[in-house]
Design a protein around this nucleic acid. Structure first.
Length: 489
RNA sequence: GGCCCCAUCGUCUAGUGGCCUAGGACACUGGCCCUUCACGCCGGCGACUCGGGUUCGAAUCCCGAUGGGGUCACCA
């Protein structure tokens, strides 16, 4: 009874895809993989004026980064191609003509100037906006004359003036629109390119798409599509309109909400696993206790029935938390490999490249629970690499300490450590705890100045581990530098 | 403004008539752990938009209001 599942992601290369866009791609992909159906990518490049260079690459790159593989589409081909609408123009043109012949569409010769004036008048009179159907009832004579004159024309759909158009939405149930509220919308432009509605309906049919899963912003144009399917004698697919993703101001997420594109998140150091998991949770949930899912789990458990109907705000705090979660669970080797390119790029220029991967691997366990993105690492771990640490000498002197006692503490540490044979976490802890005892100060009063001396900061990874990674030579050099700084006061 | 969709903590959500004095997560916050920061652990704050029905019983069903969003291009 049911046709095989074939779903599509049909972006247009008019901008870099933002998270909402990719979320819809993800839901399509999950639905296909869950049901054993096909996932098709089709590029809707019918708006030549708005095409943004590089956006097609960004779309493809985003899908690949997330691991959303497609069965048919650009780069992989398929039996229903071409998958670029700009390469399918004759198909749309032929069917548009066919619609005219069958009485479902008509040629319109109105100039954009006339349309602008018409809209201005409608706005001024507070009338509903829409085409006044000037060319709908042209006499055969008038029409022939205009056609003969070679005046540019477009093709419009002849929307029924009465009646209602009803369809089922898988998430929302029955949705109905009065035809009287629907415009004689454009099917084919002057330049011979189709408008979305025409190309989309034709291709979904020719590519045998079974389910149209798209964002809610399309809900109100669905009756146009339903009428088109009927006029073309095509069977309509099933529709399901996904909830919108809103920016913090509650409006539809867009460029003006800041870093909204997927590539930006990648460049900011969010993990692919994080984004996949997070995007899945944007408008879908399993239950009240599970929310960490890997790719295979998502495929196994995804279902359209559990997609929400309510638009939701993109929760950046939660994204950060999730990314931290994934970073903490990544094996050290894996995390190191992912961190390396970010550190190579972001660490201060004076640090020698390439970085020593073994050294980085040692420090990764020390920073992994302190960073929330891969990009954080460079700023957090720079002291592991720097030759000269920059900090205010006053920072060395702790709350209850004086310059004198601090000097004594650092001097004592230098003494003990220079004669320390094995320089590891355990020996350092043992030595330094005893030193604090001997000096008659609290451990913290010794450790804090040491931390500043060796890391230049007062919030750093655990001291002994850090010093062990830095190594004896570097630590002593830094303690001496701190001593010099204090003496110079 | 017309049309359409939606409505549970600040945010994301669980909940499909009794399991709900409404559960979880993020954020916020108190504490513990502790050499700092972070992680982790324990606790707290915090919501069914309102008004009518239906029902023995409503967050759950119906109606209305209100609120929010989307859409009204030779853009998708």
């Amino acid at each position: 009874m049911d046709k095989p599942v074939r779903v599509r992601y049909a972006p247009s290369p008019t901008g870099f895809p933002h998270v909402g866009n990719i979320r819809t791609a993800l839901f399509n992909w999950l639905f296909a993989r869950h049901t054993g159906g096909k996932f098709i990518v089709r590029i809707e490049d019918t708006d030549t004026a708005r095409t943004v260079p590089g956006s097609l690459e960004a779309i493809i790159g985003s899908l690949r980064w997330l691991g959303l593989d497609w069965d048919e589409g650009p780069e992989v081909g398929g039996p229903y191609g071409p998958y670029m609408q700009s390469q399918r123009l004759p198909i749309y043109q032929k069917l548009a003509e066919q619609l005219i012949a069958a009485g479902f569409a008509y040629r319109c010769f109105c100039t954009s100037e006339r349309l602008d004036n018409m809209r201005a008048a409608q706005t001024a009179a507070k009338l509903p906006l829409g085409y006044d159907r000037h060319c709908r009832d042209l006499s055969t004579d008038e029409r022939n004359k205009l056609e003969a004159s070679g005046a540019p024309s477009i093709i419009r759909f002849k929307t029924p003036l009465t009646g209602r158009t009803v369809f089922q939405d898988m998430l929302r149930g029955e949705v109905a629109f009065e035809n009287s509220g629907i415009d004689d919308y454009v099917l084919l432009k002057t330049d011979g390119f189709p408008v979305y509605h025409l190309a989309n309906v034709i291709d979904d049919h020719l590519m045998e798409i079974s389910h149209v899963l798209r964002a809610e912003e399309w809900l109100s144009s669905t009756p146009k599509h339903v009428m088109l399917y009927a006029a073309l004698k095509f069977e309509a697919p099933q529709f399901a309109h996904m909830p919108l993703i809103l920016g913090p101001d509650r409006s539809k997420l867009s460029k003006r909400h800041g870093a909204a594109t997927l590539t930006e998140y990648r460049d900011q150091g969010y993990l692919q696993e994080t984004m996949l998991n997070f995007l899945a949770l944007l408008g879908w949930s399993l239950d009240d206790k599970n929310e960490i899912f890997n790719r295979q789990q998502l495929i196994d458990i995804f279902s359209l029935e559990r997609v929400s109907r309510t638009a939701g705000i993109f929760n950046k705090d939660k994204l950060d938390w999730l990314n931290g979660m994934y970073i903490r669970t990544l094996p050290v080797e894996d995390l190191t490999d992912r961190l390396l390119p970010f550190m190579e790029k972001d660490l201060p220029a004076e640090i020698k490249r390439p970085l020593d991967i073994n050294y980085v691997r040692q420090l990764v366990p020390l920073i992994r629970e302190r960073i929330i993105t891969l990009k954080d690492a460079a700023a957090y771990a720079d002291f592991f690499f720097l030759d000269q640490l920059e900090y205010d000498s006053a920072k060395l002197i702790g709350k209850k300490m004086t310059e004198e006692t601090t000097l004594k503490a650092l001097k004592g540490a230098e003494n003990k450590l220079s004669s320390l044979a094995s320089f590891n976490t355990a020996s350092l802890e043992d030595t330094l705890r005893h030193l604090a005892d001997d000096l008659g100060i609290k451990t913290g009063e010794l450790f804090n100045p040491l931390r500043v001396a060796t890391t230049a900061r007062d919030a750093a990874p655990p001291l002994f581990e850090t010093m062990a990674v830095l190594g004896k030579e570097r630590c002593l050099k830094r303690i001496i530098a701190a001593l010099t700084k204090l003496a110079g006061n």
